[in-house]
Design a binder for these strands. Sequence first.
DNA 1: ATGAAAGCGCTAACAA
DNA 2: TTGTTAGCGCTTTCAT
Lengths: 349, 349
Amino acid sequence: MVKSGITLKEMAYMLDVSIATVSKALNDSSEISKPTKLRVTDLAKKHNYKRNITAYNLIRKRTSVIGIIVPEISSDFMSDVFDGITYEASKRKYKLMLCQTKNKYNSEVNSINALTDGSVDGLIVSASEQTIGRKKYSHLNDLVDENFPLVMFDKVIDAIDCDKVGANIFESSYNITTELVKSGKKKVGLLINSEKEHLSVLCKRGYINALKNNGSIVDEDLILILGKDELKNVKLIDAFVGSRNVDALVSVDERYAIEAIRSAQKNNMSIPNHLSIVTFNGDMLAKNFRPSITSVSQNGYLVGREAAKMLFKRIKQKNSAGFITKNIATVTKYRETSYSTSVGQLYFS
Amino acid sequence: MVKSGITLKEMAYMLDVSIATVSKALNDSSEISKPTKLRVTDLAKKHNYKRNITAYNLIRKRTSVIGIIVPEISSDFMSDVFDGITYEASKRKYKLMLCQTKNKYNSEVNSINALTDGSVDGLIVSASEQTIGRKKYSHLNDLVDENFPLVMFDKVIDAIDCDKVGANIFESSYNITTELVKSGKKKVGLLINSEKEHLSVLCKRGYINALKNNGSIVDEDLILILGKDELKNVKLIDAFVGSRNVDALVSVDERYAIEAIRSAQKNNMSIPNHLSIVTFNGDMLAKNFRPSITSVSQNGYLVGREAAKMLFKRIKQKNSAGFITKNIATVTKYRETSYSTSVGQLYFS
DNA sequence: ATGAAAGCGCTAACAA
DNA sequence: TTGTTAGCGCTTTCAT
């Protein structure tokens, strides 16, 4: 429904003036006399006139809508990102269209096709697992080729030439590991996914650098690589915690952290004394699990705002300078799986 | 960007035919000859022609967009609802605009105003807490008065005259309680929110009816009413579990269930033997907590699909019959806080 | 089988 | 200060 409301034409007829006059009056043009303006605005108010946004968009050649395509909306992080984008968008009177890909490649392609039929002025995308796994990027590269405003965030793809918003994973992994070592931990373990995954790679790099720079030995046996099979992961983690004598763990997934806790409890290890744990991607679980888990998470709100800002810049100026990647500082929330350190503030939520 | 692509006009010029011919050819009109059609479609493909959807919408007087306004997107439930809506929407080539109110009244009002400027053909709304708390419904009632297609779901407001999709809370509370009693539980407790809350009211009603119909006594001391203050709730629940000797609990919030578990563990009560727990609104926590918590949850996907179907019916036929409320059956997932019963299937996720 | 023209609702350059 | 006209990109009726 394009508003069953009254149109300029109808109002013009009622007031016996031209359509242009009505239009100008409503837009408070200086060409129109006070009395006329008043007559027009009064009538408009009376009939609850709303400009037909479709017609308006047709003239301006833009939609005032941006599209957001993400794997999954059900996380605090996404909620915050959405909030951040909303903030920047409403400032500019933009609306948001959303597609959830559920991490499926086909769904992502369809979503992008659907939204780029002229429905949106630009796109903010976090890639699906399948897309990344299959390395099929043509649907995204096509956008780049067409000069279509595109910003990626979170699950970004290096191979795609566009603006990006990421997180300083390497640094925070480095810092976290350093902190653990400095606090006296002798055997810091690492729980990561396949070495192909962006997060895991950066996380491992930070971890290794930190160990080396702090005089610890890098022991590959303390690095556990998990896979897709959740049940198998549980067993792997259980065996790992039970046998490696780790006194600290850095994990890339809060679910891994939880399994580690369960194993530790089974082995009568106290947390955080015998085993201290920090997880990346800490969300609802890290916060609500008991013991609550110290987590390094992205500041979703800032990520969202930054992504939106970059996108609007692109929309305004399509062919501006080269593409930018901005890393937003992560936030570490110290919870029950950590010693409270002088560095950090204790979080209870 | 309304697609930097080629227009009908340009193609018409290139092929030396009229705009109308190009249009008809692309729409596979029977008026156009085979050869012409081919010439046109070839050129269109070559230039990756996409119909300008804004112009199209202007003519059709609809937007092919529906708006969704919800308090918060970060739950499995919302994700599923969104998925269900998406399913019905894509069938009809509709897109989705989303607003998150974060449970704020102002945000809800602004969102509704923003989307009803002609940007969407209809609205699917779950009301914010503040809206419900303050009982300020004019922004919604205005829509109803304008005959604007509106469907409410989840946090529905009885006072608003529109189509609604809810859940059979009363029945499932009744059934759950009955099951507990029949399985031998003697003192079934109830954890609810203020008696004003829809869910709590229905839940209590089902609980009481079930007790009565199964020969149990209703003991008001076994009903704990929680409030807004989370810290206070924790204490209340702890005291309740420690003193009331309940052997089963029905909760309206998974967070309450978790606190009950912690108290039970403190008191060396084994779960589910000494204390069996079922929670409504079970989402990420119920699933991932250990012990995992038996939960009664809405089938988000079906709720979403149903809401969308109702909305599309309204959009198609604005002044059709009176408004309908449809209740979607809830799903009970038996987890570690329950005896596995013959009735239910055990869920591990 | 093709084209001319009107029009969706609006804005904006130009005329009066 | 107001009105006329053209046009955004498309569909559709009515001529040809």
